[in-house]
Simulated assay, not measured.
Amino acid sequence: MKRILAVDDSASMRQMVAFTLKSAGFEVAEAADGAIALEMAKKESFSLVLCDVNMPNMDGIALVRALRQLPAYKFTPLLMLTTESGAEKKQEGKQAGATGWLVKPFNPDQLIATVNKVIG
């Protein structure tokens, strides 16, 4: 089973993402910010990381940069799920190593389709 790490400082958003992905057959772990997510990623293996941009302690773009430094996450899909839709922020995410960019509020079917597409 594919394991996904959902990272968002909003508990309700994490719950919606987890519910959507679990209903599609994925196993989902949750983290409240990038710092917690990074520690989890160092100890566990995930097929994909889905993270918000704006979070306390470590934002999503810093998390993507940090994950890309870890050998286990060099090629792992890292998707941003955020309210940020500006071209500048998207470019910053891409330069950090983000695989893709989804804008909140998300469409559950689109989220599942995107996840399936990037993790095969």
Results as ranks from 00 to 15, higher is better:
Ala29Gly: 10
Asn54Leu: 14
Leu38Ser: 06
Ile61Gly: 04
Lys89Ser: 13
Leu50Met: 10
Asp109Gly: 11
Leu79Phe: 08
Val28Asn: 08
Glu44Asn: 15
Ala37Asn: 07
Ile112Ala: 08
Ile4Arg: 05
Val17Trp: 00
Phe75Ala: 15
Gly120Gln: 13
Glu92Thr: 08
Met55Gln: 08
Ser45Gln: 14
Gly60Arg: 02
Glu88Asp: 15
Lys2Val: 05
Phe26Met: 07
Ala62Glu: 13
Gly120Leu: 10
Val103Met: 06
Gly25Val: 09
Glu27Thr: 14
Arg14Gly: 09
Lys22Asn: 14
Leu78Tyr: 02
Ser10Trp: 08
Leu70Trp: 04
Ala72Ile: 00
Ser12Ala: 15
Ser85Met: 09
Asn57Ser: 14
Ala96Val: 05
Gln15Met: 12
Pro56Leu: 08
Ala113Cys: 00
Glu44Trp: 11
Gly25Asn: 07
Ile4Gly: 05
Lys89Val: 15
Glu44Arg: 13
Lys2Gln: 12
Ser10Cys: 13
Met16His: 09
Arg68Val: 00
Leu81Met: 09
Leu48Val: 06
Val118Tyr: 15
Ile112Pro: 07
Val118Met: 13
Gly86Pro: 00
Glu92Asn: 10
Ala72Tyr: 00
Ala31Ile: 06
Lys74Trp: 05
Ala32Trp: 00
Asp9Thr: 04
Leu5Thr: 02
Asp33Tyr: 08
Phe46Met: 08
Ala37Gly: 05
Ala87Gln: 11
Ala98Val: 10
Gly25Lys: 03
Asp52Cys: 07
Val64Leu: 01
Val64Cys: 13
Ala96Lys: 03
Glu39Gly: 08
Met40Gly: 00
Thr99Val: 01
Val118Trp: 15
Ala66Ser: 15
Glu44Ala: 14
Gln69Asn: 14
Gln110Pro: 00
Gly93Phe: 09
Lys74Arg: 15
Asp52Val: 07
Met58Trp: 01
Gly25Ile: 09
Gln110Met: 13
Arg14Met: 07
Gly120Trp: 00
Ala35Tyr: 08
Leu63Tyr: 03
Thr83Ile: 11
Asp8His: 01
Lys74Asn: 11
Ala113Val: 01
Ala29Trp: 11
Gln15Ser: 11
Leu21Lys: 05
Asp109Ile: 06
Ser45Gly: 14
Ala72Phe: 00
Ala6Arg: 02
Ala96Gln: 06
Ala31Gly: 04
Gln91Ser: 12
Glu92Ile: 02
Ser45Phe: 13
